[in-house]
Design a protein around this nucleic acid. Structure first.
Length: 611
RNA sequence: GCCGAUGUAGCUCAGUGGUAGAGCAUUCGAUUCGUAAUCGAACGGUCGGCGGUUCAAAUCCGCCCAUCGGCUCCA
């Protein structure tokens, strides 16, 4: 029987790869998607005359348009809308740009009865106002650019994808609109490739792979957003923890441990209670009286106040600083139900937290050291696709504590560090913590959603609130500065991102099972067990396949479980004290002496490279 | 929290008002096997939960829970 190996994809090398630029990378796509969103809005208003238009921009993978419609759009509606769009496109309507005065624009919008458009008009500060017409049948306030005619759109390269609720102006207190997401390309081939890649991305989803690989689970009986870790998943966590702990010990960090709950007062002093009371699990009060007086215990949403207490336990000398207190601390946050998802957003998670208490003159240097550690961690984990975000305060908001002076100092410390390192980064006003600005490291998951992993924060405010001090050289009492930092951010989110980044194929040093011995028959089991025992003594995570299935099946099982090294044991191997090695990455390597396999595995573990 | 969709065996999924199904997994038996599925049998389900409509509900309706997509939020 001839078998087609399932893992071998049927590539046709002659076909040129289809490129799928993001919208911002292609002027053509910008126009196509912009115009397509107008065509969709026109189609919607033809089919649903009560629907009011709002905004409809392009996004990196397509476009959307928000409507205020009395009835939500259904799947069937999307089909009808698409059909109507095809009719419009086939009319080959010219897309005509018109410039009008503000008053004229206002007059026309009022004639249409489109209140949202009026609000948008009020926000446009420049004149003239540009309108774009689709033939003489429909127009929208728009800055453009657009294609010249709907004939430039290919109906077979357009797809309406989903409907979602979205708040007007992104404000949860305002009207919720119906958003239709769609995508549009130059050719049907591009659309097909886009859909294929989306399918591929779903296969990398850490929720799917985590289940398949048996790393973690969620149980209804436990609660939403509260992951349970299996032995394999726990092993992975431990490997990551051990790795970072080692790096931190080498850099002078001091491990500490704090409890999961504390008096609510602790978080009143820090300010967390005032800012995040609603996002914390409810307070545990002993009786109604205590509850009324807001006296009780809370699950910790942050580790910093605990580490601060450890710092405060003694009068500290300037000689002790910088003091770097580190803890893998599990925190609990009552995230909104609609926000939960897999490991990337959970209600209980472990922060690779550390708080550095430094003298002001040590801040710049210490900050650089932290960034250096974070970048080296990402390097060791082979994480390359991230952005550095300078999360500063929003000058218009009053949610921040502390003086302008402290904020300015902290923000410029971060700016300087980034400049010193020559790191590519972008500033994001409004993304700061309430107590200080941050340097955040943003990653993308398989579905292109962005998540913050690593973070470094400069904080002048909590030292103030907790009245931290140290004794300076001259005997005076001085206030230290705090750096909050977490290279992983959260172990849960990191693992979610890692699973997707590796597509479940962990590098050798992180694979929960590194070597699986596959006995060809039961006779060879004792030898396999001996080899496993030998490997385990060397710190190699090895095991024997216990199923008793035939070789083809146990190879398949090991492949599906993404075990990096398979070692087949039969008569020849026993005789020669060897293993027939098959790796996931390179396939059949042939017979290799047991000792050599062990050496290679140990070396791979030490150097964090492939087997 | 909001809008929408989904929820059937451990997993992946069929089943549109009339006695709950398949494949895989598991267990048992046979097979002792050489690089992605050996054969056979058995086991396995308050059809997410509660309530309603109906002679009859996995199927229709309501509420709740959970998951998924999006919005808002994210110390």
């Amino acid at each position: 029987m001839v078998q087609q190996p399932a893992a071998v994809e049927q590539n046709s090398p002659s076909a040129a790869p289809i490129s799928l630029p993001r919208t911002s990378e292609s002027e053509t796509l910008k126009k196509i998607r912009h115009t397509t969103s107008h065509v969709m809005a026109m189609a919607v208003q033809r089919l649903f005359p009560k629907a009011q238009v709002t905004i409809g921009p392009w996004i990196e993978s397509g476009f959307y348009y928000d409507f205020d419609s009395p009835e939500p759009f259904t799947e069937a509606d999307l089909k009808a809308i698409k059909k109507e769009m095809v009719k419009i496109i086939n009319k080959k309507l010219p897309v005509i740009r018109e410039e009008v005065t503000r008053d004229e624009a206002r007059r026309r919008i009022e004639a249409l009865g489109e209140p949202y458009k009026l609000e948008i008009l009020d926000d446009i500060k420049t004149e003239p106002i540009t309108l774009y017409h689709l033939g003489d049948q429909w127009w929208d306030l728009c800055a453009g650019p657009h294609v010249e005619s709907t004939a430039d759109l290919n109906p077979k390269a357009i797809e309406l994808e989903t409907v979602a609720g979205a708040y007007w102006r992104g404000d949860a207190n305002r009207q919720q609109l119906q958003r239709i997401y769609g995508t549009a390309w130059e050719t049907p081939e591009q659309l097909a490739e886009y859909k294929r890649r989306k399918e591929e991305a779903l296969k990398r989803d850490h929720r799917k792979l985590g289940k398949e690989l048996g790393l973690f689970l969620f149980a209804d009986a436990v609660g939403p957003g509260l992951p349970l870790w299996t032995p394999k998943g726990t092993l992975l966590r431990s490997l990551l923890e051990d790795y970072l702990k080692k790096e931190q010990v080498a850099r002078g960090y001091l491990p500490v441990v704090s409890p999961h709950i504390a008096r609510v007062d602790l978080f009143k002093v820090s300010g967390h209670w005032q800012n995040y009371k609603e996002d914390m699990f409810p307070m545990m009060a002993e009786d109604a009286e205590s509850a009324a007086a807001e006296q009780g215990f809370v699950l910790k949403p942050m580790n910093c106040p605990f580490h601060i207490q450890i710092y405060k336990n003694q009068l500290r000398s300037y000689r002790e600083l910088p003091m770097r207190l580190a803890e893998f601390g599990t925190v609990y946050r009552y995230e909104q139900s609609g926000e939960l998802g897999g490991l990337t957003r959970v209600r209980g998670f472990t922060v690779d937290d550390s708080h550095l208490f430094v003298r002001p003159d040590q801040l710049a240097d210490e900050f650089l050291k932290v960034v250096d550690l974070i970048l080296s961690v990402f390097g060791d984990l082979q994480l390359k696709n991230f952005k550095a975000r300078l999360s500063f305060r929003d000058p218009a908001s009053d949610k921040y504590i502390g003086s302008d002076e402290a904020w300015n100092k902290a923000e410029s410390a971060i700016r300087n560090a980034v400049a010193t390192l020559g790191m590519e980064s972008f500033e994001a006003p409004g993304e700061a913590a309430f107590y200080g600005p941050k340097l955040d490291f943003i990653f993308r998951d398989a579905l292109e959603r962005e998540w913050q992993l690593g973070t470094v924060q400069v904080d002048y405010n909590l030292p103030e609130r907790f009245e931290l001090e140290y004794v300076a050289e001259d005997g005076s009492r001085q206030r230290p500065v705090m750096i909050h930092r977490a290279p992983f951010g959260s172990l849960e989110r990191l693992i979610g991102i890692l699973i997707e980044e590796y597509a479940g194929d962990f590098p050798f040093w992180l694979a929960p099972v590194q070597v699986r011995l596959l006995p060809v028959g039961d006779d060879f089991r004792p030898f396999a067990e001996e080899v496993v025992a030998q490997m385990r003594l060397l710190g190699i995570r090895a095991e024997v396949d216990q199923s008793g299935d035939r070789l083809g099946k146990i190879v398949r099982t090991a492949e599906k479980e993404k075990v990096p090294v398979m070692a087949i044991v039969g008569a020849q191997e026993v005789e020669n004290n060897a293993l027939s090695v098959r790796t996931r990455s390179a396939g059949d390597l042939g017979a290799i002496a047991v000792a050599t396999v062990c050496d290679r595995a140990v070396a791979a573990n030490q150097s964090r490279t492939n087997f």
